[in-house]
């Protein structure tokens, strides 16, 4: 049963950091989610939202219980191909919890200012600046205005 009431251990953090790099890998010279050092922030965010913490712990638990990984010395000791396979196994077996884990990872990664800069996002909240749009121009209605009324009249 997924739980929200256990601590995340140092071993978990090693596994988690590696998982983050697999979920969102490095791109060009930009680090992956693990390499960005998001593990601690992700862990803290999970304390705020219990549903997402359940997903996180369920995935970590599944990793620590994976027999194939244990035989090899744990998830961190696997090569990348087998690590990805292990994650896919969890995704298949625990789709809801894995989805919550992904949600938590994306929430952490895509609200990071360094990521915003990389993807060309303004990197600021929508307000107070907002954005500029070209002013309204009625000429765009030139074609639409040519159409005869087509609503149904009722008696």
């Amino acid at each position: 049963m997924p739980t929200t009431d256990r601590r995340i251990t140092d071993v978990d953090r090693v596994v988690l950091t590696r998982m983050l790099d697999l979920v969102i890998p490095p791109a060009d010279d930009f680090p992956g989610a693990g390499g960005l050092g998001l593990t601690e922030r992700l862990e803290r965010s999970s304390l705020r939202y219990g549903r997402l913490r359940s997903g996180l712990l369920a995935v970590l638990d599944a990793m620590s219980l994976d027999m194939a990984s244990r035989v090899e010395g744990g998830f961190a000791a696997l090569d990348e191909e087998r690590q990805i396979a292990a994650l896919k196994t969890v995704e298949t077996n625990l789709p809801v919890q894995f989805g919550e884990f992904i949600e938590l990872v994306y929430e952490t990664y895509y609200t990071d200012s360094r990521v915003h800069e990389r993807i060309g996002w303004a990197g600021r909240p929508p307000q107070p600046e907002g954005f500029d749009l070209e002013p309204w121009d009625s000429s765009v209605l030139e074609n639409a205005r040519k159409r005869e009324p087509f609503w149904r009249e009722v008696s």
């Binding site: 697999l22 979920v23 969102i24 890998p25 791109a27 990805i84 994650l87 989805g99 992904i102 949600e103 990872v105 994306y106 929430e107 990664y109 895509y110 609200t111 990521v115 915003h116 993807i119 996002w121």
Partner: peptide, 28 residues
């Protein structure tokens, strides 16, 4: 915004792993 784009909104989230960045860039 970037987070809602990654999570897919009404659609499937951007896939994780290989191809993640390409999928995100195609949408965002």
């Amino acid at each position: 915004g970037p987070l809602a784009t990654a999570l897919g909104g009404a659609h499937e989230p951007v896939g994780w792993g290989t191809g993640h960045h390409e999928d995100f860039a195609e949408r965002f």
